[in-house]
Design a protein around this nucleic acid. Sequence first.
DNA 1: CCGTGATTTCAGTAATTCCTGAAAATTCAG
DNA 2: CTGAATTTTCAGGAATTACTGAAATCACGG
Lengths: 187, 187
Amino acid sequence: MNLPPLVQAFVLHFGEMGSRWGINRTVGQIYALLYVSPAPLNADQIVEALGVSRSNVSMGLRELQGWNLAVPKHVPDDRRDHFTTPGDVWEILRVLAEERKKREVDPTLSVLRELLMQAPASEAERHAQARMAEMHGLIEQLTNWYEDVKKLETERLAQLLALGSRVARLVEATDKVVSLGRRKKKE
Amino acid sequence: MNLPPLVQAFVLHFGEMGSRWGINRTVGQIYALLYVSPAPLNADQIVEALGVSRSNVSMGLRELQGWNLAVPKHVPDDRRDHFTTPGDVWEILRVLAEERKKREVDPTLSVLRELLMQAPASEAERHAQARMAEMHGLIEQLTNWYEDVKKLETERLAQLLALGSRVARLVEATDKVVSLGRRKKKE
DNA sequence: CCGTGATTTCAGTAATTCCTGAAAATTCAG
DNA sequence: CTGAATTTTCAGGAATTACTGAAATCACGG
């Protein structure tokens, strides 16, 4: 690997980090490299930059494409495929959230739904199902919220983030209004 | 493994899922088992339920404790350690978010900060740093928001979730008020 | 079609991670 | 203390995952 020190440090860090996620070192490094690269890179350039085998890069790129984290970019007068990452970091965030949800949350949700349909055959199963229902409920709330929020344009999303803790007060205020409307059912 | 079918399906699913996260199959299974168990379990009960070695359970439990996802629970008149998961699913969510942030986000944030301090030695490095700055900015915004939100009590958090897309309107409204206050700087 | 360059596949190997059983350490009652 | 019960450690083997080089496939200009 022969890269400017700053870039190299970044790439190596993503390689390490990759292991803490599901992705392997090479995939992490490829992503990092594409992310900081000023122009799209072809596979051979990646090979040279990272010092891994051509086939490894091929597989890594394929995986990144599966995650929508690397997109092929056609360069005129060049037969080779070139790749970039989605340019806008917000876009990357969206892609990541979406993919992780798809891979890590949705399958669980569907298993839970299925298990909750079955009739419990014992006290142990009744209890287990109750716990599963709790988990299912929480995950569903979270994903519903996510589905809503992901529709927001980036600008609104940024505002929402910027609001931070003030959201709390906003929610409290809303709560009060609602409570009053309901004639202070609780509290 | 000899468990009620419902429980077994749940446990096996978490075992599979474990691999998609960083955790291994056994750890995922132990967690799932503790989660649906009506009472705290000791290591030998887990061994019997899952059909894995005693030492494997020991290591798994240790890892779960590191994640704060298994907590020892003393059972009177029994020398053996018993374990449960944090009971409230919201609590579990908090723990998970906190731990994942600590392991997956904070290290990256600190590397980015470090790299951004260095003076770029070339045009390539200047560009790379600009990209890193973008990423750093986004992550910082997200973690700030998270730090704020995690302070909310569970009830408020639930309200916030329930609000869902309506948050968008709330934010828009806030935006307008602010804009008016600023004499419609933009738009 | 053919040939050239680019990419992908895949079988084999390297590296890593997981799991086990045996041994060591710890804990605590007597 | 001693010894039984329990837990932890750890070296080595099993299983999984990552990586490579060679060969196959693909894409396209001529």
